Amino acid sequence: MANRTGTYFAFDGLGQADRSKSDLKYYTVVQGWNAVKGIDFKFVNSHEKASAVRDTSKLETLKASIRLRLAASKNMVVIISSDTRKSGSLLSWEIEKAVDHYELPLIVAYAGYTSILDPSALSSRWPGTLATRISNETAQAIHIPFKKDAMLEAIRRFTVSGEAIGGSLVTFTKQAHIDWGYLTG
């Protein structure tokens, strides 16, 4: 298997070419964290896909490229927003491949939240493929707010060759959220 060093970021493009009208805007934030703050983590750019999805031959080419990127990834960050669709997006296929074939640990990052302590309360936001894999416990998933410190901690710790997540509904402790300044004691 390929050298698994990247972090694969997945989100729902919502059928939009305009970054500001899709969940790609959150990935842009991550790119900014990396560029501005000099944070040392690698990620795989899986997001040159908005215009390629309409043509079947382009879609198959895209899926082949995504499979290569997943094979080279150590984990996957799944960005969930209030707009994330339950089905019908490439995100569902990416989650399926990441869990079922590449056995990637998932870091489920929720946009718009300051803390995540009860991920099951957010199940209405999950794409169907994620809900199924959480329900049948085939997904190893930690659920975090879409916040820099939580994301970087999860990316560093939970990898194919790193610390095991140990379940499908795992969160960081309340104390960790307090330490990051997301919650007050």
Rank of each mutant, 00 (worst) to 15 (best):
A164W: 02
K25H: 14
A164V: 00
S89L: 06
E48V: 04
H143F: 08
A131Q: 15
K42C: 03
L106H: 04
R156W: 04
W93H: 13
S20G: 04
A109R: 06
G88M: 07
S124T: 07
Y8D: 04
T138V: 03
K148G: 00
A10D: 15
K148Y: 05
A154V: 04
L183D: 15
N136D: 02
G6L: 02
I155Q: 14
T61V: 05
R54E: 12
K97G: 08
T129I: 02
K21N: 14
L62V: 14
S89C: 05
L91T: 05
A154N: 12
T171D: 08
K97P: 01
L130K: 03
L106E: 03
L130F: 09
L70T: 00
L68M: 07
G167R: 07
S135G: 09
V30A: 09
E96G: 11
Y182S: 11
I95F: 11
R4F: 02
R133Q: 04
R133Y: 02
G38M: 10
S65E: 12
G15D: 15
V160R: 08
A52G: 03
V99F: 12
E96H: 09
E163F: 05
Y110L: 05
Q175P: 08
K37D: 15
Y110E: 07
L106N: 03
L59N: 15
L90H: 10
R157W: 11
T138L: 03
A154T: 06
N45Q: 06
D149C: 01
E163D: 00
L70S: 00
T159G: 03
A71I: 01
Q16D: 05
R133E: 00
S115Y: 12
G185H: 12
K148L: 06
G162A: 03
H143R: 06
D40S: 14
G32I: 09
G32T: 09
V53H: 13
D149T: 01
G13C: 10
